[in-house]
C-alpha cells in the first residue's frame, strides 16, 4: 500500500497534473488558433465584440442567470464554489503547493474547509438527484453526465475522512490512496471530457458568433467539393 501510495502521490500525480495543465493549455491554444483562422477566412469581419464580452461576462457570473430551473442553478453555483475553493485553499493543500511549487497563499480555516467539503459532496449528490428525477435532464444525460458528479465527490468525501481520522472507518492509507487517485483521474479526464468547460467557457459565446461568419463563397465551395455545382435546385 505504501508503495502504491507513493506512486499515486508521485509520478501518477505529476502526470495527471501536468496533463491537466498542458491539456487545458492545448484547448486554449487550439481555440485561439481556430478563432484566428475563422476570423481570417471570414467574409464578414464585423463582430459585436462589446455585446459578446457582456454576454460572456454575465455567464461567468452564474448567479445572474438563475431564472429558469432556479434550484438547479443555485445548487450548481454552490457546488462550483465549493469544488473550486477547497482543493486550492485547504491548508494541507497549500502546504503541498508551497512544497511543490514554492508558492504559498493564505488558506481557509479548516472548519470552513470542512463545511465546504461537505457542501461539495452534498451538492454533488443533489445535482445527481436532480438530474435523475427531472425528466428533461434524465433524457438528456449521457454516461459522463452521471459519472463525473460522483467521481468529483469521491476526493472530497475521502478528504473529509482523512481530515477526521477518528471517524474514518476505513484504512487510512487506503483512504489516502483513493483520495489521490480519484483526483488524478479527474485531472486526466478534465481535458478530455466536458470538464474542459473550465477553460472553454469564456470562449463559447465568441465561438457561437464566429460560426456564423463563413468564408466568401463557402456555399459554392461545398457544391464544388460535392460535385453538385451544376445540379438543378
Amino acid at each position: 500500500m505504501q508503495a502504491w501510495l507513493e506512486w499515486a502521490r508521485g509520478p501518477a500525480f505529476v502526470f495527471s497534473f501536468v496533463f491537466l495543465l498542458l491539456g487545458l493549455l492545448r484547448h486554449v491554444a487550439l481555440t485561439a488558433w481556430e478563432v484566428a483562422h475563422v476570423w481570417r477566412r471570414a467574409g464578414d469581419k464585423k463582430l459585436p465584440l462589446g455585446k459578446l464580452l457582456r454576454t460572456t461576462f454575465l455567464w461567468l457570473l452564474p448567479l445572474t442567470r438563475l431564472r429558469n430551473r432556479f434550484w438547479f442553478g443555485l445548487t450548481s453555483f454552490v457546488f462550483h464554489i465549493a469544488i473550486l475553493v477547497v482543493p486550492v485553499f485547504l491548508a494541507g493543500h497549500v502546504a503541498l503547493w508551497a512544497r511543490g511549487l514554492g508558492l504559498s497563499w493564505p488558506a481557509v480555516p479548516n472548519a470552513v474547509a470542512d463545511v465546504l467539503t461537505l457542501v461539495a459532496v452534498v451538492t454533488a449528490v443533489l445535482l445527481l438527484a436532480q438530474r435523475v428525477f427531472s425528466r428533461a435532464t434524465r433524457s438528456l444525460s449521457r454516461f459522463q453526465d452521471y459519472a463525473l458528479l460522483p467521481l468529483i465527490a469521491v476526493p472530497f468525501a475521502t478528504g473529509f475522512l482523512m481530515m477526521h481520522p477518528g471517524s474514518n472507518p476505513f484504512d487510512y492509507q487506503a483512504t489516502f490512496f483513493v483520495h489521490v487517485m480519484s483526483a488524478n483521474l479527474i485531472f486526466v479526464l478534465t481535458p478530455l471530457t466536458k470538464l474542459s468547460h473550465m477553460v472553454l467557457m469564456p470562449s463559447t459565446q465568441l465561438v457561437a458568433e464566429l460560426a456564423w461568419h463563413w468564408p466568401v463563397d463557402s456555399g459554392s465551395a461545398v457544391g464544388r467539393a460535392l460535385g453538385k455545382e451544376g445540379d438543378p435546385v
Binding site: 472553454l200 470562449s203 456564423w212 468564408p215 463557402s218 461545398v222 467539393a225
Partner: peptide, 12 residues
Amino acid sequence: LEHSSYGIALDA
C-alpha cells in the same frame, strides 16, 4: 466543415 466555420462551434 472544410469550407465553412461551423466546425469551431461544433467542436466547442
